[in-house]
Simulated assay, not measured.
Amino acid sequence: MIEAVKFWNEPNNKSHWAFEIDPEWRIFGEMVKVAAEAVKAENPGITRVLGGISPIDPHFINILKSYGTLDNLNAVAVHGFPFDWNNWSINEWPNKIAEIEEVTDLPVWVTEVGISTFGAEEVQEFGLRRTAELLLGRVDRVHWYSLYDLPKTWEATTRHREAEGSSYYRHFYLGLLKEDGTPKLASKIFSDYTPEFGICQWFHFEDHRLDSAIEWLRRLGVKKLRTGLSWADWLRPNAAQWFDHVMKRLDEFDTTVTFCFTPESKGIQPHHTSPPQNIQEFADFCVEMMRRYA
């Protein structure tokens, strides 16, 4: 059911890794190194990818290279949102890819790229076309973020909220569909770029959108899907049943699965961004997911 695995998500962004605890990413680097070795031993054929970095920073890649973190990986991933959060133009995408290619021989994947409709749906429509022009054929994999808008009753996965101001609310408008499933302008042209273009859609625990999302992915011609399996969720009651249900429903897609989020009880601090107390436990979770779904 799994084509590729990603180790963590945006590790150089404080929304996903508490680098005040791990300021030089030594724990992170060793955690991914151990997990990648374990996954390779369990299933050598699975593509192993460094969790998408945001911001796109070649210095961060060099840090991990110096720790040997990339030794058992097959690709590195980057995330970019030039219309919403990044301080660079959409036309700089090729340069951003080249910056990472200069410091590693591994292929570069773009596993999140998106444009919010916070200002206007026409902005997202234009941005989708331009993104496709710049990235399709330039990198091996592109995943648009995302299929659905984030429901307004949920919280965005970020620790930047107070600092972001109104930019925080852009998190809620990145879908091709509104939260109620109403299609936006960009959804009408997305199938022009599939199946080469993939989609990234995170499914929360017992997410009510799963079945409708699958119908929309089929309708849009999507074959490549990126989602996540949360280590923190794995410790919830009935987690195995939910994970099994999700992965069975996603079986028709070429799925890249991100392993991330520390259970509160396992972290140095009780937060999903915290480095774990025992990095081997994260590797054990990754291997268990391999045995179950790969």
Rank of each mutant, 00 (worst) to 15 (best):
D149S: 09
G165D: 03
W93G: 01
L147K: 01
R141K: 14
V123D: 12
E155F: 12
E122V: 13
E122T: 13
T158Y: 00
T111R: 04
H79C: 00
A163R: 10
I100Y: 09
D84K: 09
S166L: 10
W109M: 07
N87A: 14
S166H: 09
E92H: 14
E112N: 05
F126Y: 14
Y145H: 06
V110R: 07
E121S: 04
N95S: 15
K96T: 07
I97Y: 08
V110F: 08
F83T: 12
N86Y: 10
W144V: 00
R138V: 06
V78A: 09
G114L: 06
N87M: 15
T117Y: 02
F118I: 11
I90W: 15
G165M: 04
E122N: 11
G80E: 02
D105S: 14
L134H: 00
D140Q: 11
H79N: 04
F81Q: 03
S167V: 05
W154D: 11
A156C: 05
H160I: 05
L134F: 04
S146H: 04
R141E: 04
T111C: 01
Y145T: 04
L147H: 01
N95C: 13
W88M: 13
E122G: 08
L136G: 03
S167W: 06
R130L: 12
F118P: 06
G137Y: 03
E122D: 11
T158P: 01
G127E: 03
V142K: 00
P151C: 08
V103C: 10
A98D: 14
D140V: 03
R159P: 00
S166R: 12
P107Y: 10
H79Y: 03
V110H: 05
A77F: 07
V123K: 08
N95M: 15
D105L: 12
